[in-house]
Design a protein around this nucleic acid. Structure first.
Lengths: 167, 167
DNA sequence: GCTACTTTTCATTTATTACTGAAAATTCAA
DNA sequence: TTGAATTTTCAGTAATAAATGAAAAGTAGC
């Protein structure tokens, strides 16, 4: 396989992979394109490479910036905006984890806390319901701290080593 | 808030939460309904409770069984099939992780291994491309073992305790 | 084998999500 | 402050994903 072919495959598959995780295909593809691009590129470059419209590129770029995955960069003497992606895959992963935590875990915990405030706690089935809600709350918090460990495991060799032991 | 109201909210929010993770809303809702149901229920019960068609219930139930999240149960002297969900939330989580690993991580690693086999490794940008691909592979494997640790952390108090230290 | 009951399938319809493209807004240099 | 270059917005459209419902297939007792 040639390099250009491999790059194309990478972009396509990264996009397909994204959709399975609730990330829109184009956004994942733009991210992939920037990940394997050695130089900053413009919206026009992305339009051309992925054969998509200007509006589409623009909206997804904004989202990606919101996720903290790509950055605008200024190129000397150029009027157009250029973009790059952080190439450190570990940072990409932790960034996504952090964002999903913020966007989903916190609201989830809020909902669960709310559901625990039912009036008729003696009602038939209330006990079981509260059990499930309480368990999900516990699990969420557990997952939360595990993600923290994961994030720390990169900076801290010791933690990484300990994790390996349990593998 | 009343119990019935809380249950309804739980089902709706669980469905909405699912969509963010690439799980179809109805499937998540059926799962939620079964999670908080104290007794096994039939397809007709689900149709009624969620106001959805027979076909829809049937297809999603099959998927949920495929994910190992719900089970058919036989009720004495009843011709109809009944269903239950495993109420142990931890098992639910590990089951989902295991399945996603199987369905997504493995194909991903296969793809990456493929992409490393490019002919023109001296080509401009090949080095950077291989770097990214290699890094993703490493990260995937790392995530894989972390998930194993997570799964083990439940059965093994010691691991759980160690994880807490790093929190 | 027949019948009543239940589950499964899947072509069609509906709902949701994503994309386009042109107009509006913004930016910047002269 | 004008106007060319660039970015942003968003109503309309297209593509995708999910749901319906009726017909087919399966099941079990008689």
């Amino acid at each position: 396989m040639k390099l250009v072919e491999a790059k194309q495959q990478f972009i396509n598959n990264w996009g397909a992979f994204g959709t399975q995780w609730g990330i829109n295909r184009t956004m994942a593809q733009i991210h992939a394109l920037l990940l394997i691009s050695t130089v900053p590129i413009t919206q026009d470059d992305i339009m051309e490479q992925l054969s998509i419209s200007r509006g589409n590129v623009n909206m997804n770029i904004r989202d990606l910036i919101g996720w903290g995955l790509i950055n605008r960069v200024v190129v000397q003497g150029e009027r157009k905006e250029y973009f790059t992606a952080d190439k450190d895959i570990w940072k990409v992963a932790t960034q996504i984890i952090k964002e999903r935590k913020k966007r989903e875990l916190d609201p989830m915990l809020k909902l669960l806390a709310n559901l625990e405030n039912i009036e008729d706690k003696k009602e038939n089935g209330a006990k079981e319901f509260l059990q499930v809600v309480g368990d999900i709350k516990k699990l969420s918090k557990h997952a939360d701290s595990l993600m923290d460990v994961m994030i720390k495991a990169e900076e801290n060799k010791f933690i990484g080593a300990v994790l390996k032991i349990f593998k």
